[in-house]
């Protein structure tokens, strides 16, 4: 009797285990195709040799080369766009950091009326429809002479990065145990050494995460840049957009898509590995 029961339960866990493996295999396979195939196709398209066009019904390009890459770097605005993208991004991150720090400190460590409202207001740039903000902010910018200016572009990108920076920093400020701050105070720490020895070191991982989120947001920002920056300033996304529009050239677009996404993927995965914690969901999980 007991023995039978024992066998039944082991059989049960065995089938469960098999079911689990089957399910895991299914999800992984689906995701490999779902995520992998589009990326693989783009990589292939970017390597198509110009003299051997890849067309129906070939399943694989005849010859691969870096000719398209050379072409894009030589004959398009990509280099200038890269320069713009990668100089706007760090500046807007820096600005967002200084703007976010006091606000995140207050939101994370102080108790005051209307805190929930402020936490929601912070998300406005993410919640508000991007094109509406872009179009009519450009009217505001125009009247202050900021449209088509580099500084205006930095301000616009700062606006889009701020929600991430504030939310992530707020979460890290909240996570500091009050006991540790009390202990420092109790042992004679002044305000300056409290900031230097307790606050800054303890929010450092969140700070890093917030900076990377703001940075990648700036790199991929399209709406505001398109309206406020072009044609004076082109960034990588606006170049890609132009290649996806009337003059759709698949091979060039493939190259630019890769230029745009590879650094982002690497950076965000690196941050995840280093931080071992989900800052994005922690900060955006609640409205």
């Amino acid at each position: 009797m007991r023995r039978d029961e024992f066998t039944i339960t082991t059989l049960g866990t065995q089938t469960r285990k098999n079911l689990y493996i089957l399910l895991a295999a299914f999800f992984i396979l689906v995701q490999l195709v779902w995520v992998g195939l589009p990326i693989l196709m783009t990589v292939l398209w970017s390597l198509v040799h110009p003299d051997y066009p890849w067309s129906y019904p070939q399943m694989f390009p005849e010859k691969l080369s870096f000719a398209q890459w050379r072409f894009v770097f030589r004959y398009t605005n990509i280099v200038r766009a890269l320069k713009t993208s990668y100089s706007v991004a760090p500046l807007s991150v820096l600005l967002a950091f200084f703007l976010a720090l006091p606000t995140a400190y207050a939101l994370g460590r102080k108790k005051f009326a209307g805190k929930k409202l402020f936490m929601t207001l912070v998300l406005l740039p993410i919640i508000m429809p991007g094109m509406v903000v872009a179009l009519f902010l450009s009217r505001v910018f125009t009247s202050f002479g900021l449209a088509q200016s580099f500084f205006g572009l930095v301000l616009a990108h700062t606006l889009m990065g701020l929600p991430y920076m504030i939310r992530v920093l707020t979460t890290s400020f909240e996570a500091i145990p009050q006991d540790v701050i009390d202990a420092a105070e109790n042992l004679g720490a002044t305000s300056f050494s409290k900031i230097k020895d307790i606050f800054l070191p303890m929010v450092r991982p969140g700070l890093l995460a917030g900076m990377v989120f703001a940075f990648t947001t700036s790199i991929e920002e399209f709406n505001l840049t398109f309206i406020i920056g072009t044609p004076t300033f082109e960034t990588v996304p606006t170049i890609l957009y132009s290649f996806l529009g009337y003059n759709f050239i698949r091979t060039n677009a493939s190259v630019i898509a890769l230029i745009m996404m590879v650094p982002n993927i690497l950076m965000l995965f690196a941050v995840e590995r280093i931080l071992k914690s989900d800052y994005l969901s922690a900060s955006l999980g609640k409205l």
Binding site: D179, V180, K196, L200, P201
Partner: peptide, 8 residues
Amino acid sequence: ALFPHMNV
């Protein structure tokens, strides 16, 4: 309440 970090 031990301090986990020293400075940045």
